[in-house]
Design a protein around this nucleic acid. Structure first.
Length: 468
RNA sequence: GGAGAGGUGGCCGAGUGGUCGAAGGCGCAGCACUGGAAAUGCUGUAUAGGGGCAACUCUAUCGAGGGUUCGAAUCCCUCCCUCUCCGCCA
């Protein structure tokens, strides 16, 4: 979420930055509303202060009354409360009180009643103002929640993905003669089942089999071990997450159609471990001294992939359920740019260890994700397809998710929103696809890269000797 | 799912419907004492929002949301969460 104060005080800046993303937003209306909320709040606060003063005065009157009562107990005989209290103290003489004492107590009571009446009036006024303010506030928040993060000044401007900037390449793509795509290889090697998976669930699900299942598990464990050795804390989070968590990380309210939902329970299938990891410290204040906090989480991810019906229908590239190892940082706001480079390097380390060629692309303003202010994509070389394909997206979300999730850090006396970053490290299915295509051999087998062999328990996957 | 107990500041733990944002303790920070430290003493220690150059000040917050009241941590209702026991279950 954007800072409401920024919208109130510098709407032009907000407009300019959202325009860089190619968004035309009516910030004027938003700005008006933000100021309106503030005006209402000021009026309400002043009234509340007065009401509070009055309540205290009523209390004072009651105390006065009680001290008078203690001095002249019997004069209150006509009052219904606790007659037994007064009985022992009552005596005939004090029944005839001097008129001025009676009068004094009458005055106190009258004053108290007048104050009470005043309090009632204020109460109804405050309630009315509060209602109006709450409604406006809620509208404002809903609108703010639908606005994406502002791009970093360093994020390159662009109108579409063609304006993304290639930063560097690692490894040499080689053209393999008669290269097969991974789903073709998988078929002869018996690594997974697509059609039967549609029977179990529906299309865009996969069931991994034999060495395929083993390879997926090996990759997950390999990635986790690698990142843990580089200083990450391993996390295995819930994959059902509530609405607050999805709102906190930016998936809701705008992208509800992208996630599967268990409507009866206010739970959703998490589209990425970024969601539970953001939620891990929701409503917390971390100490600045133990930042950065770096987490690595394996989780299955669930996405509806609405509107991608024709694309990537075969194989492991685009599924409703896939596995991902996610890197996540909570860090000091001044350190997030360096953290972004480090996190990206950590994701790259996986591809380097597996010796798979890739390139790093910086997304332009038009291609930036909702929560990100800056993003590097890793694109791995798919030999079979003969193209680079996204396998990781490493984003700096600045304070955007932290504000939505209220995650702060204590620095000296002050609390300040921290920064969050996330990146795939890596998408496991796509890694398997790249690996199969890159390491395919003329005899139809697939070599296992060295780093993975101890996880895989072999150095090659060969076609079954007796197919079917 | 059933029965019971409970949710108060960083932590422990008081709290009578009326200056209670909340005693006391621990922890933490500063100062004093010390050659240095421990111990001790003093002072200060929540968050959010608004106003003010500032000292400061106003409002809200005692699990959450409603209600009663001039006034709620305190009374009433609903929900959530934690703990114990039973049932079920990997």
């Amino acid at each position: 979420m954007l800072d409401p104060r920024l919208v109130r005080q510098n709407p032009d800046h907000v407009v300019a930055q959202l325009t860089r993303r190619g968004l035309a937003v009516d910030v004027d209306a938003l700005h008006q509303r933000a100021r309106q909320v503030q005006t209402l709040a000021e009026r309400r606060t002043r009234l509340q202060a007065e009401g509070k003063r009055i309540s205290r005065q009523v209390g004072q009157q009651f105390r006065l009354l009680m001290t008078e009562q203690d001095k002249h107990p019997v004069s209150f005989e006509e009052q219904p409360e606790s007659p037994t209290d007064q009985e022992p103290q009552g005596n005939v003489e004090s029944r005839r009180l001097p008129g001025d004492v009676d009068q004094k107590m009458e005055d106190i009571r009258a004053l108290a009643e007048a104050l009470e009446e005043k309090g009632r009036t204020i109460k109804t006024k405050v309630a009315a103002l509060e209602e109006e303010e709450k409604a406006l506030q809620a509208e404002l928040r809903q609108e703010l929640l639908r606005l994406p993060n502002l791009p970093s000044p360093r994020c390159p401007d662009g109108r579409s993905e063609v304006d993304n900037v290639e930063l560097r390449r690692w490894g040499e793509p080689r053209s393999v003669p008669a290269a097969l795509e991974h789903w073709q290889l998988a078929e002869t090697l018996g690594l997974f089942e697509s059609e039967r998976s549609a029977r179990i669930a529906r299309s865009r699900f996969v069931t991994l089999l034999g060495p395929g299942a083993r390879l997926e598990r090996a990759l997950i464990q390999f990635m986790l071990d690698l990142h843990v050795s580089r200083g990450y804390m391993e996390v295995l989070p819930p994959v059902l997450v509530n609405t607050a968590s999805l709102t906190g990380s930016g998936q809701l309210p705008k992208f509800a159609e992208e996630s599967f939902r268990c409507a009866e329970d206010d739970l959703w299938l998490s589209p990425t471990a970024e969601v539970p990891l953001t939620g891990l410290h929701r409503d917390e204040i971390l100490s600045a001294t133990d930042l950065p906090r770096r987490y690595v989480a394996y989780s299955p991810c669930f996405r509806r992939e609405a509107g991608s019906y024709g694309r990537d229908t075969r194989g492991l590239i685009r599924l409703h359920q896939f596995n991902k190892v996610e890197l996540y940082w909570f860090c000091h706001p001044d350190a997030s740019e360096a953290a972004h480079e480090q996190l990206t390097a950590d994701a790259e380390a996986v591809l380097q260890a597996l010796e798979l060629p890739y390139r790093v692309v910086e997304l332009c303003t038009a291609d930036l994700g909702f929560s990100a202010c800056r993003t590097y994509d890793l694109e791995v070389w798919l030999s079979g397809a003969g193209a680079y394909r996204e396998i990781s997206s490493c984003s700096n979300c600045s304070d955007f998710q932290a504000r939505r999730s209220s995650i702060r850090m204590k620095e000296g006396k002050h609390n300040r929103l921290l920064h969050t970053l996330n990146g795939s490290g890596l998408a496991v299915g796509r890694t398997m696809a790249a690996l199969l295509e890159w390491y395919q051999q003329p005899d139809g087998s697939v070599a296992i890269p060295q780093a993975l062999q101890r996880y895989m328990g072999c150095d090659v996957i060969t076609p079954p000797s007796d197919p079917k």
